[in-house]
Design a protein around this nucleic acid. Sequence first.
DNA 1: TTTGTCAAGGACAATCTTTGTCCAAAGGTA
DNA 2: TACCTTTGGACAAAGATTGTCCTTGACAAA
Lengths: 110, 110
Amino acid sequence: MNKNKVATFGEQVRLLREEAKFSLREVAEQIGIDTSLLGKIERNDRQPTKEQIKFIAKFFNIDEKNLIKEFISDQIAYKILEEEADLDTLKVAEKKIQYLKSKKSVPGNP
Amino acid sequence: MNKNKVATFGEQVRLLREEAKFSLREVAEQIGIDTSLLGKIERNDRQPTKEQIKFIAKFFNIDEKNLIKEFISDQIAYKILEEEADLDTLKVAEKKIQYLKSKKSVPGNP
DNA sequence: TTTGTCAAGGACAATCTTTGTCCAAAGGTA
DNA sequence: TACCTTTGGACAAAGATTGTCCTTGACAAA
């Protein structure tokens, strides 16, 4: 798969599947879920569980951690869009992550 | 309030309240919620609704949009932390936001 | 046409999560 | 003691999500 192409989690899964020339049914069966559910996941109208992501990664033989990252970044992207939040909200979030990490690692802090 | 200080949504609300020398009860009463709930919001163990954020902004006479941004960035920060995701997940999210925005704005696209 | 496969999407029960309140307890102050 | 503040547990009510089943439409092959 083209690594430079930006695509949502679902789109990426669909691409993987189409490249490998599988039908939804074939893949869903292997993963152990309903055909319809996999279709929804590919269209981003159902969120996959961690388990399902693992199965998908295993099925297509791709890195699981990376696929999870794709999923989480999707969730963040959708949140920003649906809240109509400014892009720079991400910058604020980044600062907070560092702040919260440092906070946690200070000994004697709750 | 010091704009350079990074703090979570709840911490910021608490600071505002303490600076203005109000008790939880006094503020909660005005906002129309339980004292305990406001306390939890300040400790980030309950999420405020949009409505509550509006009331809080009004009460302390601060910019509502900005407070909402603080809230959303909090949510993103907590998500990254609890998923133990890489910081660069945010970069991926940013690309996806742009991608999704451009996708939506192309005429003749679903 | 008919048959078969595929994907899209609606409906819905089951399940999981979150919300908001009430209450009890701990700590402080007068 | 009496009073006030904050914390946090428990829990019903409300809300959101999941996964499945089923129907529909599109397309291709026989």
